[in-house]
Computed example of a mutant assay.
Amino acid sequence: MNIIYVLIPLAILLVVIAVCVFFWAVKSDQFEDLERQGSSILFDDDLAKKPTEKPNKPNNDA
């Protein structure tokens, strides 16, 4: 029975923290653009980058 005196305040504290984090995320516009991150994985950004040159390997056939 004594554990309830610990678990109930702990649960209330966690709920308060979760609600505060949610309102912070809404206030800082975290939920404004939900589609960009989901669709960005579909597009290949490697085409826009310059290809890197392969380093020249020294010829050790002396």
Rank of each mutant, 00 (worst) to 15 (best):
I8S: 08
S40L: 03
M1Y: 02
L47T: 12
N56H: 04
K50W: 01
I41R: 07
Q30H: 08
L14E: 04
L42F: 11
D45A: 13
N60H: 10
K49W: 00
N59E: 11
I41E: 03
F31P: 05
A25H: 03
Q30I: 05
E53R: 12
R36N: 06
I17P: 01
G38H: 03
K27P: 02
A25V: 07
E53I: 07
A62D: 13
E53T: 14
G38C: 02
V21Y: 02
F31I: 11
M1Q: 06
N59T: 13
V26C: 03
P9Y: 05
V6K: 12
A48G: 09
I8R: 11
A62P: 15
G38N: 11
P51G: 06
N2G: 11
N59D: 15
V16I: 15
L7H: 04
A48P: 00
I8M: 10
V16L: 06
P9R: 12
F43W: 04
F43N: 13
D61T: 14
D61L: 08
I12P: 00
F23S: 11
I12G: 06
V6L: 09
K50S: 12
I17Q: 06
V26M: 01
I3W: 00
Y5P: 00
A25M: 07
E32Y: 02
V16Q: 02
M1G: 14
G38I: 08
I41V: 09
N2V: 09
S40E: 09
L7N: 14
D29A: 05
L7W: 02
P58L: 04
C20T: 15
E32N: 10
L42P: 02
P9H: 07
A18Q: 06
N60P: 07
V16T: 14
I4G: 04
K49P: 00
E35M: 08
L7I: 14
R36H: 05
A62F: 06
A25N: 09
D29Q: 10
F22P: 00
A48K: 10
Q30E: 08
Y5I: 05
K57S: 08
A11C: 06
K57F: 01
D33I: 05
P51H: 05
V19Y: 02
I3R: 07
W24T: 15
R36A: 14
L42M: 14
R36P: 00
N56G: 07
P58I: 12
